[in-house]
């Protein structure tokens, strides 16, 4: 996997270097002082990552060892027997495997489709508000929910959706539904609960980067457009959106690579035995059956699988973006 990226980036390096500094590669100019400074600056990250990211990677060995049941991971790594791919196979053979994969991908694709664009629209339309004071108010107030933990925030919805005392009973009373709708218990609703609540809680916070991007668009562009007789929607379509397009692409790629990650705290609040068939995802699965049972090897193996797929998603997401817009993260 690593090799693949390296070769991929290597070949890309050539093309980009050609555009950046034509002919540079052939002549091989000697390094200037500034080259050294730049390499030195970038090397800071290498030193940091070597210690805090690469050094702990030896823990991945555990995925290929029969280390379940050991209390001390260091011992498990050094003493336990090799078991090749047994841990991975055990996961593939789990009766819930396909459900978990379906849920992880389904839920995340939905989030990408809905929860990714909406904060952008929110930022764009907030910028359209006429009163500056109102704008400031909106941009502050919509952050509030970010600071309330899911346990508490979700608790509000748990009481709101309670069958006997919450919304379902009211809807029935008003004659809008024939029987009480079991929002929390019906597996079919679970994904939508997650989508809806994460929108409510995260839209304001998620839009902050776009708010910053929009704030930086020079006002002259709008004034010029106005002179040309552009209306509001023209301005959004031809100035605002194109101006923040690079930001959008950047975060789109980053989101694609996070396609297998779910906020565990969020899911566990709404997960219950009735909706488990649609609510169990990779992260909740590892959380429940990994560390508490000392199944370190098993958990590491699943985590490693996740990492590989995520990396693949990042690389392909970046590739697609480059094909379409000619730009990518690297």
């Amino acid at each position: 996997m690593v090799d693949e990226i390296l070769t991929r980036t290597e070949s890309e390096a050539e093309t980009s270097d050609n555009t950046a500094q034509k002919g540079d590669r052939k002549i091989r100019k000697p390094w200037t002082g500034n080259d050294w400074v730049l390499v030195g600056m970038a090397s800071l990250s290498v030193i940091f990552l070597a210690v805090f990211a690469y050094a702990p990677l030896y823990g991945l060995i555990l995925a290929f060892k029969d280390g379940d049941g050991w209390l001390n991971i260091s011992q498990a790594i050094s003493v336990a027997d090799w078991c090749e791919f047994d841990n991975f196979i055990a996961f593939f053979e789990d009766p819930d495997f396909w459900d978990i994969i379906l849920n992880t991908l389904g839920l995340n694709l939905l989030q990408l489709l809905i929860n990714f664009p909406l904060p952008i629209l929110f930022a764009v339309f907030t910028a359209e508000l006429m009163s500056d004071q109102y704008k400031k108010f909106v941009q502050t107030v919509t952050f509030f929910p970010h600071f309330i933990s899911w346990a508490v925030y979700g608790g509000i919805f748990l009481s709101l959706f309670a069958l006997d005392t919450g919304l379902p009973a009211l809807l029935q009373q008003w004659g809008l539904t024939d029987s009480k709708v079991d929002i929390l218990g019906d597996p079919d609703y679970f994904w939508w609960i997650i989508i809806g609540t994460s929108l409510l809680k995260g839209m304001g916070w998620g839009s902050v980067i776009y708010v910053a991007a929009i704030a930086a668009i020079p006002q002259e562009l709008y004034e010029a457009a106005k002179m040309d007789g552009a209306n509001r929607f023209h301005k959004i379509a031809y100035i605002t959106i194109p101006s923040i397009a690079p930001t959008i692409t950047l975060f789109f790629i980053l989101s694609v690579s996070g396609l297998l990650n779910n906020g565990i705290e969020h899911l566990l609040v709404f997960q219950n035995t009735s909706n488990i068939e649609r609510s169990e995802v990779l992260d909740t699965y590892i959380y429940k059956y990994g560390i508490p049972d000392f199944r370190y090897s098993y958990a590491t193996a699943i985590g490693l699988l996740k990492s590989i797929v995520s990396l693949f998603l990042l690389v392909s997401g970046n590739w697609v973006c480059k094909k379409i817009s000619g730009k990518g993260i690297y």
């Binding site: 390096a13 730049l38 970038a42 702990p56 030896y58 990396l311």
Partner: peptide, 22 residues
């Protein structure tokens, strides 16, 4: 754009976004 070994630096960085030792 004129950073030497830019691709290598990126590869080293991006890799860590996905793989952690636990």
């Amino acid at each position: 754009p004129n950073l030497k070994f830019k691709k290598t630096f990126y590869a080293i960085n991006l890799f860590t976004m996905f793989f952690s030792g636990g």
